[in-house]
Simulated scan of single mutants.
Amino acid sequence: MDLFGKVNDPIAHFVLHTLGWIRVNYFGQTYEVSLDPRSVRTAAVESFVAWMKEMHADATRPWLVKISAFTGRDWISVTDTAPEGIIAFLDRILEFGKPAAVPETLQVRQCPLDRAAGFGVEAVNTVIERWKAKGQGLPIDDPSVRALLATAKSGCTVKILSRDNIGRIVFGTYTPSLTTLWSRDSWGRFLGAPVGEVVPDRALGSAVELSARRVMETGRATVETWEGPVLSSTGIIADLAWDRLTLPLTSHEPNDAVLVVTHRLTPVDTDRLAS
């Protein structure tokens, strides 16, 4: 610990939970290893694995390794005499530090852009034509976008999603359709909130984020048909299908943005979903 000039518990906790180090204590052929999987760095993991393999290969006597990982509340441990068991535990425990992933429950099919004409909302067609006329660089404050967002009580949900300063996909303006899955209390909290955190259906929120990121990265408009079970804000599960237009927008701000229009294909009892 030459970097700090001393060794004590506060310093040890700092390097584990903040700097992402792996701590190794040993006495003879017995080793105690500890790490925080949510902060550990790749270089620390690679160095530890290489050191352990080399140590085991050169060992002239049996050795014992106890590895402990902090879960955020407590420590969990595994003890082994071979590197394979320790590495297997390390691989599994590092999942704590990876971004959460939700299993995909929705089926998504790519469709031609002209399918959006079937939404039956003239303001949608106007936006697409303006986007094409602008050389596929439609400003976020274009009059056609504002007009579409103001088209309340239509058969489409209209929203703007953007990437915030720390990379999250967040809701901007949100205009619900007559068949929205969300109660007024739910969608009223969307503005400025991360999609993956505020949408009641976690799988849907995750899929919406991924779709928005793809369009932001490619700069190409997409129309997709989505199908599958969706959880409404009232806890009712509906097996639905809907078309989804995602259109990249340009902005005066440095952050990316997309316009999203969804059109329900599956009839649904809106009183049950949005009451």
Score class of each variant (00 low, 15 high):
residue 149 L to H: 04
residue 144 S to T: 05
residue 129 E to D: 14
residue 35 L to V: 00
residue 223 V to G: 01
residue 63 W to C: 06
residue 272 R to T: 13
residue 253 E to Y: 09
residue 81 T to H: 11
residue 244 R to S: 13
residue 43 A to Q: 15
residue 247 L to I: 07
residue 267 P to A: 08
residue 144 S to P: 00
residue 149 L to K: 05
residue 32 E to R: 06
residue 103 P to I: 11
residue 10 P to E: 10
residue 247 L to F: 03
residue 115 R to M: 09
residue 35 L to P: 00
residue 73 R to A: 14
residue 160 I to D: 00
residue 205 G to Q: 07
residue 107 Q to V: 15
residue 105 T to D: 08
residue 88 A to L: 09
residue 16 L to N: 02
residue 163 R to D: 05
residue 194 P to E: 08
residue 215 V to T: 09
residue 71 T to K: 08
residue 228 G to T: 07
residue 4 F to D: 03
residue 248 P to N: 06
residue 211 S to T: 13
residue 128 I to P: 03
residue 105 T to P: 00
residue 51 W to N: 13
residue 104 E to T: 13
residue 85 G to C: 06
residue 113 L to I: 12
residue 54 E to H: 13
residue 51 W to C: 09
residue 27 F to K: 13
residue 51 W to Y: 15
residue 241 A to N: 05
residue 257 A to S: 13
residue 213 R to G: 00
residue 65 V to M: 03
residue 270 T to L: 11
residue 240 L to T: 11
residue 15 V to A: 08
residue 44 A to F: 04
residue 146 R to H: 11
residue 62 P to L: 05
residue 39 S to K: 09
residue 174 Y to I: 02
residue 46 E to C: 08
residue 8 N to F: 05
residue 150 A to S: 15
residue 54 E to F: 11
residue 271 D to Q: 15
residue 198 V to N: 04
residue 119 F to E: 03
residue 184 R to K: 14
residue 133 A to E: 14
residue 107 Q to Y: 12
residue 29 Q to I: 01
residue 2 D to A: 14
residue 52 M to Q: 04
residue 95 E to C: 08
residue 27 F to M: 10
residue 84 E to G: 04
residue 22 I to T: 04
residue 191 L to A: 14
residue 172 G to I: 12
residue 112 P to R: 11
residue 52 M to W: 11
